[in-house]
């Protein structure tokens, strides 16, 4: 399916060289690989260092010059991270709230994005402007009023406090609205002529078309939620409600941070995000197939 895409031929040509078409693809493909590999080293190196550091002694992680490979694989850090904080519980809390929030944001963003892009109604632009505007106010000044609202709604120290603020995402709505613009109106009209109802069009035509963008949004939202520290910290009091970043933050004491333990914990906590990414990135390819089909 992926080979149906025009892009494999487009981009190498864009890389710009003369000569017969077939020869060009080969030559530029090699160049592509070389360039991407060189860049890839820069991108991947700190990540590998992070993973290897989870198996180092705590002094090796801050050695100068940095030590790349641990002198011998050492599981102390991972054991410490697992035992000194209630890692399993925090992990489960993070997973639960991030998953629920991500699913909710996908639904709400797609629906609102679709309505904003493809329907005409009063106050539409104003609504969009207001959604955008909420992204432009720095978080430090909203924290206290939002906390007071959480108190009023009796959300403190509940999972709802972690999920409710993430049910909508301005970023997601904006992103979906932009994407929905690129769906041709003729396509929707054709479906309407066929007698498809609006919810049906949304669920069966628009959502599948939006899969690649939804996949991207899912990755981002899951990651943000997974990493968020300040809000959970302010609204959660008891330890069995902690999320993973909160748990890892306790490796910072008054005077210094135990970088080795924090890094080991972060390495483990990155696994779900990577799984989400690897699973969802297939959707990019399937997305091409869908779009291609409707022609």
């Amino acid at each position: 399916m992926a080979t149906d895409s025009p892009l494999p031929t487009l981009a190498p040509e864009f890389a710009g060289s003369a000569g017969p078409y077939r020869g060009r693809v080969r030559w530029t493909t090699v160049l592509n690989y070389v360039l991407l590999l060189l860049g890839g080293v820069v991108m991947v190196f700190p990540f590998i260092w992070m993973v290897l550091s989870a198996f180092k002694r705590s002094d090796e992680i801050i050695a100068y010059p940095p030590i790349f490979f641990p002198s011998q694989p050492n599981f102390d850090l991972l054991v410490r991270v697992w035992t000194e904080i209630n890692f399993g519980r925090y992990f489960a809390n993070s997973l639960l709230t991030a998953t629920v929030a991500t699913v909710a944001v996908l639904l709400t963003s797609a629906l609102v994005g679709f309505v904003l892009a493809k329907y005409r109604f009063r106050g539409q632009n104003l609504l969009f402007v207001m959604v955008l505007a909420t992204m432009m106010i720095p978080w430090p000044v909203l924290l206290i009023p939002q906390y007071l609202i959480a108190v009023e709604l009796k959300l403190l120290n509940t999972y709802w406090a972690l999920i409710l603020p993430s049910l909508y995402s301005s970023f997601g709505i904006f992103m979906m609205r932009q994407f929905m613009h690129s769906i041709p109106n003729e396509l929707l009209d054709a479906a309407r002529i066929d007698g498809a109802s609006e919810p049906h069009i949304f669920a069966r035509l628009v959502l599948p078309l939006a899969t690649p963008v939804l996949a991207a949004l899912a990755i981002f939202h899951f990651m943000w939620h997974w990493d968020s520290l300040i809000w959970p910290l302010v609204v959660i009091n008891t330890r069995n409600m902690y999320t993973l970043p909160l748990g890892l933050a306790t490796f910072t004491n008054q005077y210094w941070t135990d970088y080795a333990a924090v890094n080991a914990g972060a390495t483990v906590s990155v696994i779900p995000v990577l799984i989400v990414y690897v699973v969802l990135q297939r959707q990019f390819i399937e997305g091409i197939a869908m779009t291609g089909m409707k022609a």
Binding site: L36, F45, P46, S53, M223, A266, V270, Y277, V278, R282
Partner: peptide, 21 residues
């Protein structure tokens, strides 16, 4: 898929690892 993953890795690399490196 491999390259997509590689170029996404810095986004998920921990703050500690990023700042130390």
């Amino acid at each position: 898929g491999l390259f997509r993953a590689i170029y996404f890795l810095p986004v998920v690399t921990s703050v500690v690892a990023t700042s130390i490196i």
